[in-house]
């Protein structure tokens, strides 16, 4: 909502197939600095695949990705992370054996410098640095209101809280682009409200650009500035919430017989 016009990321002509399944076909769109960009579409439309292409998990068969002015054919996951792209997953990918604190701490791995040997011995600068990172992590924990579960192994947390911890881990990297794959899936109304508020706060307070996949149309229309609509791997619409809401192709896709993804558009 803070969109100031500059393009942070642009994907052009992206194509991706798994065997015979065309997950993405000639998809192009851009994400502007500071905006909340939603990607919607029925189940299997290719939304998650798109995020996976952006952060380098999938290697597209065609197309290009321009991020911060640099154009590449594909990203590598740790390069994407280094360049400031952080993400959460549709099926929660937390480090289940670790505590909330440690999970969020891993989000700062890339911010940690320092001598490898000293680090291995855990003395001197390594120790001091650790303390500084802890402070940032504690801020995130306060921000997400999860102080009570700091020391709990995340495997034991309820689903809604796990999603929140996962957001915390992504935030710990202080990303420029935050990719959220269905951050509110499976949540009740109240949890969804909280999560929406966190996302908007991140966007407004830190100016973080956000790409968001979400099935709940109410939420999407509320918090996003522009929306890309995918169906069967193709882009069928792209525009503001009002434009997309009225788009005949979108209405057809969501009412189509073979699909049951959205909850009404």
């Amino acid at each position: 909502m803070h969109s100031n016009g500059g393009v942070l990321l642009k994907v052009e002509g992206i194509a991706l197939a798994f065997g015979g399944v065309k997950a993405l076909a000639d998809v192009s769109f851009d994400i502007r600095k500071g905006e909340v960009r939603a990607i919607i579409g029925p189940n299997g439309a290719g939304k998650s695949s798109m995020l996976n292409v952006i952060n380098g998990f999938y290697r597209p068969h065609a197309g290009s990705i321009t991020y911060k002015g640099r154009t590449v054919r594909h990203m590598r996951p740790h390069q994407a992370a280094k360049a400031g792209i952080a993400r959460t997953f549709q099926n929660i990918a937390l480090f289940k054996g670790m505590t909330t604190l440690d999970n969020i701490m891993t989000g700062r791995l890339l911010k940690m410098r320092g001598n490898f040997l000293l680090d291995a011995l855990y003395v001197g600068p390594a120790r001091r640095e650790e303390t500084a990172h802890r402070a940032v992590v504690e801020q995130i924990i306060d921000f997400l209101e999860i102080q009570a579960i700091r020391k709990v192994p995340v495997g034991r947390l309820p689903y809604g809280l796990q999603k929140r911890v996962e957001l915390g881990r992504a935030l710990a990297a202080e990303p420029d682009l935050l990719l959220l794959d269905e951050p509110m899936a499976g949540m009740n109304f109240e949890e969804k409200e909280d999560m929406s508020r966190f996302i908007l706060d991140v966007n407004e307070e830190f100016g973080t650009t956000i790409a968001l996949i979400e099935h709940d149309m109410g939420v999407v229309m509320d918090i996003s500035s522009r929306i890309v609509v995918l169906d069967y791997g193709r882009k069928i619409a792209d525009g503001t919430p009002d434009e997309v809401r009225r788009d005949q192709a979108v209405i057809d896709a969501y009412l189509g017989v073979a699909h049951d993804g959205g909850k009404g558009a």
Partner: peptide
């Protein structure tokens, strides 16, 4: 830090890659 990275990889490859 390296140990934490190793534990992270052991726990979930995808998530580990996503944090770089």
């Amino acid at each position: 830090r390296v140990g934490r990275a190793l534990r992270a990889v052991a726990d979930d490859h995808q998530a580990a890659m996503s944090v770089g």
